[in-house]
């Protein structure tokens, strides 16, 4: 029983770390800043959730469970707000899009303040 919990924790940690590695691969391979930000979003969302849940299974206790729930909720909120802030500044600094299939922001009058 105890070994099973630990092994499940190991699996969750490795899966989360793999999400991190693929996000880093995306940062290296994707063509422009906007698509790279999408890749980082996967690491900040499910990557952290997997790693922290796996860590909880290695140190299981009720106070830790509460802390992990708080961490996951805060992480979801803050990573979303951080990504929006970065996306907005990226656009405001006139970072070019790489071969867009469609772009309705540049043609809009106000440039999305």
């Amino acid at each position: 029983m105890n070994a099973l919990v630990t092994v499940t924790g190991d699996v969750l940690i490795v899966v989360g770390a793999l999400v991190f590695t693929t996000a880093a691969l995306g940062v290296l391979r994707f063509p422009d800043a906007y698509t790279r930000l999408s890749a980082v979003g996967t690491a900040g969302g499910i990557g952290i959730i997997f790693v922290v849940s796996g860590a909880l299974l290695h140190l299981p206790s009720v106070p830790n469970l509460v802390k992990v729930i708080v961490i996951i909720a805060l992480q979801l909120i803050t990573s979303a707000i951080g990504s929006i802030a970065l996306a907005r500044s990226t656009y405001l600094t006139r970072t070019p899009l790489h071969r867009p299939a469609y772009d309705e922001l540049t043609s809009s009058a106000t440039h999305g303040k």
Partner: peptide
């Protein structure tokens, strides 16, 4: 571009959170 550097920095911050959890 500067935006690419900032986004890579964001990933680095998430990585630090993960590393702190694992070392702990």
């Amino acid at each position: 571009t500067e935006a690419d550097r900032a986004i890579a920095g964001d990933l680095l911050l998430f990585g630090v959170v993960g590393l702190v959890a694992l070392f702990g």
